[in-house]
Design a protein around this nucleic acid. Structure first.
Lengths: 256, 256
DNA sequence: GCCGGCGTTCGGCATCGCCGAACGCCGGAC
DNA sequence: GTCCGGCGTTCGGCGATGCCGAACGCCGGC
């Protein structure tokens, strides 16, 4: 296959990110959302402004100039996402011996697209199609770090406490996100269920837009190597599975 | 002003070129329309296919995937074009001592956006808003060379003869267009009016899309230095004016 | 059957995109 | 009122990416 033009992929992903938002987005939202330097995002955004696809409000934030239906219809539905990601999610579960999930942010909630569970006596049930709390899961941390819609979904809302370890203070929750962006994965322990540890990583489109997250989870004894630290080989497997799924996104020819 | 990203400008201009066509366009149309190598146009088009903005039919031609209203509304109307181009068109007339015109292809016809005429006893009248024949003018040659819509407008049509020098054979007309693309200007002599010579050059947007053409015209004695050859300094002035007008396109902030 | 034109691919080169650093502005905190 | 941190913007250096010439394979017309 011929090589794609990276700048155009990125510009399209910026449009997609902005199309997913009702409110104007900041330069920072776009840069962090696509994993780009501010200057890079700025250059691309200014070009999109110049060609009329995007405009900038008087506060310096960006919003899409016109409704581009193609950007909305282009969004993978959960079944497409599941079919793209199920092999690697299954493989991830097999290689780590833990349960695995693939989830995306849709219509104001994080929803499970695929779930592989292992024959372990932890409290498990098939969750495909279910919504999960973004503030109390590793998957949710990833989406909060990269998806401005996810971040907005918890604004002005009381964060529900599931365990004694659930972070319900928004400032404290947000304070951990730069580290997630930096290292490219997130880790939670006992926040949605006592004794449950999880590691998640972002799934991106060709332009860098985070369209989903994939994770493994299991009991703390299995997922952690030292207290409060995830096993390095599990982290590597999650990041690898996320990259593999990302590589498949946008590869199949889109149906007309 | 910050630098723009050339690839994104080009991609947007490709969309704009395709939005102006009802029929699918060929790779060649896009490449010649934007003045790019085939391989370059191919890479950008494949990326646009990948992000879903363009699709390719089974014959290998390209068409826009979805109606993007922004691309249509973005087209400069003739008044905007006139206000952008009038200073340089006036200056062109002054520097060459000839009449000058700025024209664009709109709704199936080439229309004059601005006209500066000199106090010469040739048959002149203000033509702003008038349609001109694309096959018999230097302006028209430019648009035929670069705008697939202009080329399509004369397909299946009898070309009107204005003088004994008017080219009415479409194959012969088209045969001269590669030279126009190569040298970046066109020249006609006595095709729309006896004894009238004209030199025209393309006005492009930042992505390379030809949105208009600018020309000087006058009697053959004044515009030609040798029989059937335009004066080199007039050619240079026209090309320069076209570049200057091009540089202004897309510079002013677009109104929301 | 042949040939020309088109879409596609490849690889080398240098231009352009990328991004770190710095700047200026602005709003919030004190 | 002042100070400071965060944001959008700009600049310039570097190397990665985009660009394009050349070549290829396919297909349709003669």
């Amino acid at each position: 296959m011929a090589k794609s033009v990276q700048s155009v992929l990125r510009a399209a992903s910026m449009l997609r990110l902005m199309a997913a938002e009702v409110e104007p987005v900041t330069l920072k939202d776009v840069a962090t959302g696509l994993g780009l330097a501010k200057a890079t995002a700025h250059g691309l955004l200014q070009t999109l402004v110049e060609v009329g696809f995007v405009r900038q409000d008087e506060a310096g934030r960006y919003l899409i100039s016109a409704d581009l239906p193609e950007l909305h219809s282009d969004q993978l539905d959960l079944n497409e996402l599941r079919s793209i990601g199920l092999n690697w999610t299954d493989a991830l579960a097999a290689r780590t011996g833990e349960s695995a999930r693939l989830a995306a942010f849709r219509d104001g909630a994080m929803v499970v697209a695929h779930h592989v569970f292992r024959s372990r006596p932890t409290r498990q049930r098939l969750q495909i199609g279910s919504a999960l709390p973004v503030h109390a899961t590793a998957l949710g941390r990833v989406l909060l770090a990269f998806d401005p819609g996810a971040a907005r979904s918890i604004q002005g809302r009381e964060l529900e406490r599931f365990t004694s370890r659930t972070i319900t203070d928004r400032t404290r929750l947000m304070a951990g996100l730069p580290a997630v962006r930096e290292q490219g994965w997130s880790f939670t322990l006992g926040e949605d269920e006592p004794g449950l540890a999880a590691i998640a990583a972002p799934v991106r489109d060709r332009g860098g837009y985070v369209i989903a997250a994939v994770e493994v989870h299991g009991s703390a004894d299995d997922v952690c190597e030292r207290r409060d630290q995830p096993r390095a080989e599990h982290v590597a497997e999650v990041v690898r599975a996320a990259r593999r799924i990302s590589a498949l996104v946008g590869r199949e020819g889109r149906s007309p």
